[in-house]
Write a protein that binds this DNA or RNA. Sequence first.
DNA 1: AGATTGACTGCAT
DNA 2: CATGCAGCCAATC
Length: 106
Amino acid sequence: MDDQDVYEPLYALIRTIPPGKVVTYGQAADGVDGLRLTARMVGSAMRIAPGDVPWHRVVGAGGTLPIGKISPEMLLRQRELLELEGVRFIPGRSNIIDMVKHQWLG
DNA sequence: AGATTGACTGCAT
DNA sequence: CATGCAGCCAATC
């Protein structure tokens, strides 16, 4: 057995998110089975997430990006990656995603 | 081993 | 819309 991170089930869930879709931290935490994760745990897990995890598809509640909580370079990268996948942002709210269209129902 | 922190969320003020 | 507080639990000091 590998000494997998306790977040392995979480990473597995994130990897199942299709392109153009996003989930909120709380949704991801609640969607993981076998762990008692909270939204904060998800965020912390993303920071240490392996390179094969599309962490950019995880956003804050309501489609907000975690501005000010992470390095600005990562924020720009996340927004860029999402745009490349066809995610639409709300005009005038350049950091808010149109969750009505892009929130992954799991 | 105890205290602090943290990619969060929701409600109250 | 800004600010504050409680809840959550692993990681870090």
